Amino acid sequence: MSSTGKQDIAKEHRAPPDRSVSTYRTLLALFGAPTSWVGQMSLSEPLAAYACYPYQVPLPAPLWADLSVILAMISLICLAGGLLSGYVAWNLWRQASPLPGVTGAGEHAFEADGGQTRFLARLGTMSSFVFIVAILFTGCAVLLVPPCSAWI
């Protein structure tokens, strides 16, 4: 078999341009929700700590009256980022999964990479679900725990 024959076979098994998967969408699907949760923790914890314990002396009330609103807004923005990541991952998974009963040239478009796209999309969907739940639970702490309260 000549080298042109091998190139022709490789071209046959590539995904069509209209069904190709963007690397950015895949990265967003995989890392969007975890990054949103880490961002939520990295922003809200230091803010709450400084507002209630600024100079090595605990305060009975936070420095800012709107601390709960600020923390709730951070949680909502991070939840929106996690939900966007989950939506992208879910759409990627649906796109990469073969439709039952459909046959034709585009049926195995995502099989050219050995199922890697489907695996990454499924992993992104599961990861997004877990981190969306984590974002919700972390956000519930803002509603359930009063700021600057003693834990005793």
Rank of each mutant, 00 (worst) to 15 (best):
S2R: 08
S3P: 00
G5Y: 11
G5V: 11
Q7Y: 03
Q7V: 07
Q7C: 01
A10Y: 00
A15C: 15
P16T: 10
V21T: 13
T23P: 02
T23H: 13
T23K: 15
Y24C: 08
Y24I: 14
T26F: 11
A29E: 04
L30S: 03
F31Y: 07
A33M: 12
A33S: 12
A33E: 05
W37F: 13
W37M: 12
W37C: 09
V38W: 00
G39R: 12
G39P: 02
Q40K: 07
M41R: 15
M41Q: 13
S42M: 13
S44Y: 00
P46E: 05
P46C: 01
A49M: 06
A49V: 03
Y50P: 00
A51F: 07
Y53S: 01
P54Y: 08
P54H: 11
V57R: 10
A61I: 02
A61N: 02
A61G: 00
L63G: 03
W64H: 04
W64E: 01
L67P: 05
S68H: 03
V69Y: 14
V69C: 01
V69E: 04
A72Y: 00
I74A: 04
S75C: 11
L79K: 12
G82Q: 02
L83F: 09
L84V: 03
G86R: 07
Y87M: 06
W90S: 03
R94F: 05
Q95R: 15
P98R: 11
P100N: 14
P100Q: 14
G101I: 10
E107N: 09
H108V: 04
A109S: 13
F110C: 12
D113E: 08
G114M: 10
G114I: 06
G115C: 14
Q116R: 15
Q116T: 12
A121K: 08
R122Q: 12
R122K: 11
L123S: 08
T125S: 13
T125E: 09
T125V: 02
S128D: 03
F131A: 04
F131N: 05
L136F: 06
F137Q: 11
G139R: 06
C140S: 09
V142W: 08
L144D: 05
P147F: 13
C148P: 00
C148G: 03
S149L: 06
S149T: 10
W151N: 07
I152T: 10
I152L: 09
I152V: 07
